[in-house]
Simulated scan of single mutants.
Amino acid sequence: MNFATLDLNLLRVLDALFREGSTVKAGARLGLSQSAVSGALSRLRHALDDPLFVRHSNRLVATDYAETLRDGLRDELERIEILLSPPGTFDPATATGAFKIAASDFMAELLMPPLGDLLNKTAPSLRAQLIDLVPHDYINSLERYGADLALIPDTELPDWANREPLFRSPFSVIARAGHPGIGATDGDTMPMETFCALPHVLFSPEGKLSAMGDDALARVGRARHVAMTMPVFSGVCRVVSESDLIALIPDQLARKVAAGFGLQVFRPPMLIAPALIVGVWHKRADRTPMAAWMRQRVFDLLKPLDQA
């Protein structure tokens, strides 16, 4: 390869292909047509003498050689962005780009509506994308899914990641209004016998049959019957609203959706430590202007949810 004749714009295309795994999505990220991205990929293959990507189902998968370029390329592009964007020059009103947030659909209710309104008013050409977390390995969402920020329960982090504590979320029990098996009044503590006797629907993207609530029950010598698992909170709330199943979900979410789904909200009968939700991102993006601005907007919207 002759570096002196290489079009450096091709490296932005390569980075977008790594992030998106699709010529269509990479084009959308860069504001290019699919044919332009395909043409750039062809020139990259010729310049680097490697296929770079092979098609697997509907996704492009990087070759072994391309994988050796992924992290270093992203680091270098972000260093160039920092180099060319002195502090104070970032202007959200004219900035363009995309910011991927990996989180559960909890954030579809609590974060994305106010974030959408904020961006529409202050940064109309920036795009926020809410994507799934990598199952069983939430931190890996930053690498495998190309997320710019992961919103997850607090956990031990690798040395390449930074974190920002955002809010603590206690848990509430939800049941459909008029549930015949519940004698407690909305807002009261649900009796332990009722909580353990009724079937539960559990939020679990991985299909696990136990969670923090089960650990809390075990500490007082009790157990519940999990009759169903759902990979999204919206599904949990829908099932509860149309059946006699109950569920244990974050309190902020329960209060937000109760009226829309026709739910009653109760305090759980056992002590459950609130979950601390944190924002996690790669250290290499600490000073990337657009990413830093977007992270702070997300943090500003989520920290008022704290119920410490």
Score class of each variant (00 low, 15 high):
residue 5 T to V: 09
residue 8 L to I: 09
residue 9 N to D: 13
residue 10 L to F: 02
residue 11 L to I: 04
residue 11 L to V: 05
residue 12 R to E: 15
residue 12 R to N: 14
residue 14 L to V: 05
residue 14 L to C: 11
residue 14 L to F: 08
residue 16 A to M: 07
residue 16 A to F: 04
residue 16 A to T: 11
residue 17 L to S: 10
residue 21 G to D: 04
residue 22 S to H: 10
residue 23 T to K: 09
residue 24 V to S: 10
residue 24 V to K: 11
residue 24 V to A: 07
residue 25 K to C: 03
residue 26 A to N: 10
residue 27 G to R: 03
residue 27 G to H: 04
residue 28 A to W: 05
residue 29 R to V: 02
residue 29 R to N: 05
residue 30 L to F: 08
residue 31 G to T: 05
residue 32 L to N: 01
residue 33 S to V: 01
residue 34 Q to H: 11
residue 36 A to Y: 01
residue 37 V to N: 00
residue 37 V to H: 00
residue 42 S to Y: 13
residue 42 S to G: 09
residue 42 S to Q: 12
residue 44 L to C: 12
residue 45 R to C: 03
residue 46 H to D: 12
residue 46 H to S: 11
residue 46 H to L: 14
residue 48 L to A: 06
residue 48 L to S: 04
residue 48 L to I: 01
residue 49 D to E: 11
residue 49 D to I: 00
residue 50 D to H: 01
residue 51 P to K: 02
residue 54 V to T: 07
residue 54 V to R: 15
residue 54 V to P: 00
residue 56 H to Q: 14
residue 56 H to T: 09
residue 56 H to F: 07
residue 59 R to S: 13
residue 59 R to Y: 11
residue 60 L to S: 14
residue 60 L to F: 13
residue 60 L to N: 06
residue 61 V to R: 15
residue 62 A to C: 09
residue 62 A to G: 12
residue 63 T to F: 11
residue 64 D to H: 12
residue 64 D to S: 14
residue 66 A to T: 06
residue 70 R to N: 13
residue 71 D to S: 12
residue 71 D to A: 09
residue 72 G to Q: 05
residue 72 G to L: 01
residue 74 R to Q: 10
residue 75 D to I: 01
residue 75 D to S: 04
residue 76 E to I: 01
residue 76 E to R: 10
residue 76 E to V: 02
residue 77 L to A: 04
residue 77 L to Y: 07
residue 78 E to Q: 09
residue 78 E to V: 05
residue 78 E to Y: 05
residue 80 I to N: 11
residue 80 I to A: 15
residue 81 E to M: 03
residue 82 I to N: 08
residue 82 I to T: 08
residue 83 L to F: 12
residue 83 L to Q: 14
residue 83 L to R: 15
residue 84 L to I: 04
residue 84 L to E: 09
residue 84 L to P: 04
residue 85 S to Q: 04
residue 85 S to M: 02
residue 85 S to V: 00
residue 86 P to V: 00
residue 87 P to C: 05
residue 87 P to T: 03
residue 90 F to N: 08
residue 90 F to V: 03
residue 90 F to R: 09
residue 90 F to T: 03
residue 91 D to W: 03
residue 91 D to G: 01
residue 92 P to A: 10
residue 93 A to L: 15
residue 94 T to M: 03
residue 94 T to C: 05
residue 95 A to L: 06
residue 95 A to E: 05
residue 97 G to N: 12
